[in-house]
């Protein structure tokens, strides 16, 4: 049993391992108290817009069987404050450990996406993740992710204005995700991440009202994993760019499942809410799984599906 080589290459960048945090579930100052995130292949900062966003009123989260709904509404301090206050801390924690820094980019319009992306492109980050799949904001977000023409329009507009590798994060709330994936690839996406949350709703039958103040929200957690695995498997066969697979990864074998479906890397989201140190534990479990099952590297795992 030898130590597997966990290194992967995405968009010309080497990651030391394929495990990342998913957007909206990681805070360097808070998550970093529970585990050393410089052990991960990459971390993803929560969605950032050109100007600060308030987000939605509470309640913003609701538990479901095997998952949770959220309607945070992309509350964020804006790209400028992130660059000034958060990013130096993230870089200081990572030091020379090589963990890649991905920033999730949000907007209400093509121009807003471009403005936020340009600010972040000029900062000390490694990759940009274009969030065209948030179900919880009124304009933008999922509106761009459910229409191939709009997905292509925002991708190509941002692509022209940034130099860094551009990941486009896709929503599962579509009839055929490969159509959107192909449109994003044709418009210049360097990689895809999927899936964002599935839209859902919970009703409090005693109050006779939706549990979430926003009415609806996005479903994540282990309940969505089979949906995510299938979508990764389909998209991997439809495009030539790498995929960061996510959706309900709770353990190392879940991560292996996504890699076997064709993802080049994986991201851990809701698991980090259920257990603050989950991303680091899942990396350890994936490493052990590969060693125990004779996978020399991630490529071997990716090619293993019969």
């Amino acid at each position: 049993m030898c130590k597997p080589d966990l290194r992967v290459r995405l968009c010309g960048l080497e990651w030391k391992n394929p495990v990342a945090t998913a957007s909206g579930t990681f805070s360097a100052r808070d998550s970093g108290k529970y585990y050393d995130f410089s052990r991960l292949g990459a971390i993803t900062a929560k969605g950032l817009s050109a100007v600060p966003w308030q987000g939605n009123p509470a309640p913003r989260v609701a538990e479901t069987w095997g998952g949770m709904l959220n309607a945070i509404g992309l509350e964020n301090p804006g790209a400028d404050r992130f660059i000034a206050e958060e990013l130096p801390f993230v870089r200081d924690c990572i030091g020379n450990a090589g963990t890649r820094v991905i920033v999730n980019v949000a907007g209400h319009s093509v121009e807003e996406y471009c403005m936020a992306a340009e600010k972040l492109d000029a900062a000390d980050v490694d990759m940009l993740e274009l969030n065209i799949s948030c179900p919880n904001i009124r304009e933008g977000g999922i509106g761009f992710g459910t229409d191939p023409r709009m997905a292509a329009a925002v991708t190509s507009a941002v692509r022209k204005r940034v130099k860094k590798p551009l990941i486009v994060k896709l929503t599962p709330n579509v009839t055929d995700i490969t159509e959107i994936a192909r449109a994003a690839e044709a418009a210049g996406a360097d990689a895809l991440s999927l899936i964002n949350t599935l839209t859902g709703m919970r009703i409090d039958v005693k109050r006779r009202a939706p549990v979430l103040a926003n009415g609806s929200g996005g479903l994540s957690g282990p309940a969505v994993k089979p949906v995510a695995v299938l979508m990764v498997w389909r998209v991997a066969r439809a495009v030539g760019i790498p995929i960061i697979g996510m959706g309900g990864i709770m353990c190392g074998e879940d991560a292996a499942e996504f890699l076997m479906a064709g993802a080049s890397a994986v991201a851990v989201g809701t698991a980090a809410l259920a257990n603050p140190a989950a991303p680091a534990e899942i990396l350890e479990e994936l490493t052990a799984f590969m060693a125990e099952n004779g996978f020399a590297d991630v490529e071997a795992l990716r090619n293993a599906l019969r």
Binding site: S27, N56, R60, V61, I72, A272, P276
Partner: peptide, 11 residues
């Protein structure tokens, strides 16, 4: 959500 400051669930 998380109860430790990461998810912004409890506003």
């Amino acid at each position: 959500g998380c109860g430790y400051g990461a998810c912004l669930g409890c506003a």
